[in-house]
Computed example of a mutant assay.
Amino acid sequence: MPNKYIGHIVEIIYMSKSGEFSQRKVRVSSVKDGIVRAVDKANGEWRTFVESNILAWQPVEGTA
């Protein structure tokens, strides 16, 4: 995930370590060494994602 998304809300499709898929809207806080830290917009909780397990991402329009 490019650093240009830091501070923006993106919608991601993610595969967990157990192979489960999820779709979330998150506000990206940092991208470093293959780890993405973000706040889940649905519940306000911090999440950590392995960048290689993010299968797709798309910026959510009208956010900054």
Rank of each mutant, 00 (worst) to 15 (best):
N53G: 07
M1F: 06
K17R: 05
R24E: 11
V50F: 01
G19E: 07
K25D: 14
W46Y: 13
P2F: 02
E51P: 04
V26W: 04
R27C: 05
I9K: 14
V31A: 02
R24P: 00
W57Q: 10
V36F: 05
E20C: 05
M15G: 01
S29Y: 05
M15T: 03
P2Y: 09
S29G: 11
E61L: 15
V28K: 07
S16C: 03
L55K: 10
I13E: 01
G34F: 14
G44C: 03
F49N: 09
V26G: 06
Y5A: 02
G19R: 07
R24D: 10
S29N: 09
A56S: 11
I6G: 07
Q23F: 00
A56V: 06
Q23R: 11
I54S: 06
I12F: 02
N43P: 07
S29E: 13
E51Q: 12
H8F: 06
E11F: 01
V28M: 07
M1R: 07
G62Y: 10
S30Y: 06
A42M: 11
V26S: 03
K32H: 10
R27N: 02
A56R: 11
S30V: 04
V10Y: 02
I54Y: 06
R24T: 08
I9D: 13
K32N: 13
K4Y: 01
D40V: 13
E51S: 10
V36K: 04
F21P: 00
Y14G: 04
I9G: 05
G19M: 11
V31L: 11
V50C: 01
T63H: 00
W46F: 11
R47G: 12
K41E: 15
V31T: 12
G7H: 00
E20Y: 04
I54L: 05
V60Q: 09
D33Y: 05
E51C: 07
E11C: 04
A38M: 11
S16P: 08
S18Q: 13
Y14N: 09
V28C: 08
V31C: 13
I12K: 05
V28N: 06
D33I: 05
A42H: 08
K41T: 15
N3H: 12
I35P: 12
G7R: 05
T48V: 10
K25Q: 15
K4S: 02
T63V: 12
Q23E: 10
E11T: 09
I13C: 01
I35T: 12
K4M: 03
I12Y: 00
K32G: 04
N43R: 15
K17Y: 09
V31S: 09
V28S: 05
S29P: 02
D33H: 08
I6M: 08
V28P: 06
Y5S: 05
P59D: 09
E11Y: 02
T63D: 00
G7A: 01
D33T: 07
S16N: 03
H8A: 02
L55C: 08
K4C: 00
G34I: 15
N43Q: 14
I35G: 03
Q58H: 13
